[in-house]
Nucleic acid binder design. Structure first.
Length: 688
DNA sequence: GTTAGGG
DNA sequence: CCCTAAC
């Protein structure tokens, strides 16, 4: 890895590795991902331990908690400011040596000491924030609820050119120490190399000394904490080469809370490769988020969609590149397990086990409170089985959505700080409201009682979640009035329109507090998403190379809010809530045409290729979908028009379907026959 | 991870 | 669109 190049921001001059297209068998093996693995790993690990301790005043925590209370109160929910104590409780602040320069905030020893003392006193809940400055081009910050009202923005100051990580750790399990320790060592080890190389170029301190302190602190955590969860936020600033093409700044970040790590794909030296294979990378991300790392699958909320819009222009004017990205533009995991992480969002206590705060695992319900990225809210609700009809909730924290920040390298650290500050302000300043999600669905009717909504002490507290939303939703007229653009069948265009799956849209989703057009809203969400995905999206104003600088602010639209909201899932509600069936997305004629064309050329049995060819950027189409669609197409073509349903497919296409189907069936038949022949002859040879 | 096929 | 066996 030529970290030197990276550090020099020599995007334009560097020959990025190109991943050649290889036969699938080869491609599969070839994992360019692997190339990044080490680095990514390093980021993960680093992120896992590197964080910034927020200086949280008790009043801050209190006021925040109070806010939550108020919000909830509106929902007629009796809320206890239980979090207060927790918030007040222990916070240990740790700083790496290397991060003590300039932008680093250092707590007063006395305070620190006190915090540590608290930690010891209250082993169940310890929050450790470690601020660690390192030189990767990532800024990661977290603003939990309590951070918001007060000096949260303070954190922004602690950003240097290299970037910032902030992590909030709520200790719980005894494993933390080991796991983290391991990771830290790994990461620091790896990071060290890079860092050292970078040192020359950086005005800010080295991170070489990170290792010791962090490890040490983590160990402390392990010792102290009886309960922990790690929250990795999503704030990143990426230095932008002043002369490089904007488009080369490909940044993708994945937080892997499952392993307390952070993944980043923002290595500039990999940019080309990544872009070339952005699709794959993206898919990988999706996989990561939806499979092994499902725990922290993106929690995209309504609020995240629009948080940034309002301030976009101002950012622009600042000539800063501030991009607000959805943490991940990822399709919502649909599999059961993918939703299981919801379980960890809201902790509740069906057993009414008194004041126990150390959510001990029960019935397989994860007690870990792992706040989700984005503006997701983690809430814990305590359900007391008394006859007291009150439902008690305790919201652990809210996160702000991920921000993507880009600033020219020539910017000063100070301006970067301001940029970050701006970004955060833009999110927080627009007003927020709280959304309630129950059983995976937004509860939009504020007039329903909790009882009516099914929120009761005996019921679905485990499926209750909260989200933060903008207090208003600017509605994009263009979207509302527009039909979803059909996925373009123009295969050829894909080459031209190929771009990283990070559509830039300044669009907002409408939202209604009542529930008049839920269907429509959802549809809209879909459309929105589709727009985002469509390579031929006509709306995308800033998608391509031509106008790189127009991307000063990027807002990545969100996915279906319902699916993304922080929704706790009940293990009991096996399917209904935990894994909502994917929304139906009938294939348009154009899509069918693209499919037919692809199949005509590639044949059946290569659905992955067909998918990529025909639906490169239609993320909602999987190759399984494509295959299934072909299946139904073949069926449709073989039945009478009267029996067909849905949008009529031109007979011409159906004819082609049949023709292609017949042709490829024949081919496969031939293949099979040949295989048999071969086998046969071989058998004969052997026999002879 | 893909493919194929039943549900 | 889901699920899953088989590869």
């Amino acid at each position: 890895m030529s970290s030197k190049k990276r550090l020099n921001y020599g995007f334009s001059g560097y020959q990025f590795p190109v991943i050649p297209k290889a036969p699938r068998s080869v491609r599969r093996r070839h994992s360019h991902n692997n190339l990044d693995n080490n680095q990514i790993c390093a980021f993960e690990l680093l992120a896992a331990v590197a964080g910034e301790l927020l200086q949280e005043s008790e009043s801050s925590a209190c006021s925040n908690a109070a806010e939550g209370k108020d919000e909830l109160a509106d929902c007629r929910v009796g809320v206890k400011c239980e979090q207060l104590k927790e918030d007040k409780a222990v916070k240990s602040e740790c700083f790496s040596q290397g991060s003590c320069v300039e932008s680093t905030y250092i707590p007063e020893p006395a305070a620190l000491e006190q915090n540590l003392k608290h930690s010891l006193d209250k082993p169940n809940h310890v929050e450790n924030n470690i601020f660690h400055k390192h030189n990767c081009s990532i800024m990661n910050a977290d603003f939990s609820q309590k951070d918001w009202s007060c000096a949260k923005l303070e954190n922004c100051k602690k950003v240097d050119r290299g970037g910032m990580f902030h992590s909030e750790v709520e200790g719980r399990s005894s494993n933390l120490g080991n796991a983290c320790n391991k990771k830290i060592e790994t990461v620091t080890q790896k990071q060290l190399d890079d860092d050292r190389k970078q040192t020359d170029d950086l005005t800010v301190a080295n991170s070489c000394s990170v290792k010791g302190p962090i490890v040490e602190h983590v160990n402390n955590n392990a010792t102290i904490n009886s309960d922990n969860s790690v929250q990795f936020p999503l704030y990143r600033a990426v230095p932008k080469p002043s002369f490089g093409k904007q488009r080369n700044n490909v940044k993708l970040g994945i937080r892997d809370d499952d392993e307390n790590s952070f993944r980043s794909y923002s290595h500039s030296s990999k940019i080309r490769a990544f872009r070339k294979t952005s699709r794959i990378g993206y898919r990988r991300i999706k996989r990561i988020l939806t499979s092994r790392h499902w725990k922290i699958a993106p929690q995209l909320k309504d609020c995240e969609r629009s948080c940034f819009n309002n301030r976009v222009k101002s950012f622009y004017q600042n000539r800063k590149r501030i991009c607000a990205l959805e943490r991940c533009r990822v399709e919502i995991p649909s599999k059961r397990r993918k939703m299981s992480h919801y379980n960890s969002d809201v902790a509740y206590d069906q057993q009414a086990s008194s004041e126990r705060k150390s959510n001990s695992p029960e019935k397989g319900i994860k007690r870990d409170i792992i706040p989700h990225r984005g503006s997701g809210a983690s809430a814990s609700a305590k359900n007391h089985q008394k006859k007291d009809p009150c439902v008690k909730f305790s919201i652990k924290s809210f996160n702000i959505p991920e921000l993507f920040i880009e600033v020219p390298e020539t910017e000063t650290v100070g301006s970067l700080k301001r940029s970050v500050m701006e970004a955060v302000r833009s999110i927080l300043g627009n007003g927020l409201r709280v959304g309630v999600v129950l059983e995976g669905k937004k509860v939009r009717d504020d007039n329903r009682t909790l009882q009516q909504a099914g929120v009761s002490q005996n019921g679905n507290l485990d499926t209750l979640g909260f989200t933060l939303e903008p207090s208003f939703y600017p509605v994009s007229p263009s979207l509302l009035s527009k039909d979803p653009p059909a996925s373009s069948p123009c295969v050829a265009d894909h080459e031209l329109t190929r771009r990283p799956p990070s559509p830039i849209l300044e669009l907002e989703l409408p939202s209604a507090s009542s529930d008049p057009s839920k269907t429509k809203l959802d549809k809209h969400d879909e459309d929105y998403h589709e727009l985002a995905q469509s390579p031929t999206n006509p709306i995308d104003p800033t998608s391509d190379v031509a106008i790189p600088d127009s991307r000063a602010v990027v807002i990545i639209p969100h996915l279906n809010a319902e699916a993304l909201a922080v929704v706790p899932g009940s293990p009991k509600n096996s399917r209904s809530e935990l894994s909502q069936r994917r929304i139906r997305r009938p294939f348009s004629v154009a899509e069918v045409e693209a499919l037919v064309e692809a199949v005509e050329q590639l044949g059946t049995g290569r659905w992955r290729d067909v998918k990529i060819r025909a639906f490169e950027y239609a993320d909602h189409r999987t190759y399984v979908d494509v295959k299934d669609k072909w299946k139904t197409l073949v069926h449709t073509a073989s039945i009478t028009p009267q029996q067909r349903r849905g949008e009529p497919v031109p007979q011409e296409l159906l004819d082609r379907v049949l023709a292609a189907h017949a042709y490829w069936s024949q081919q496969h038949g031939k293949q099979h026959a040949e295989a048999l022949k071969m086998a046969d002859s071989q058998v004969q040879n052997v026999g002879a």
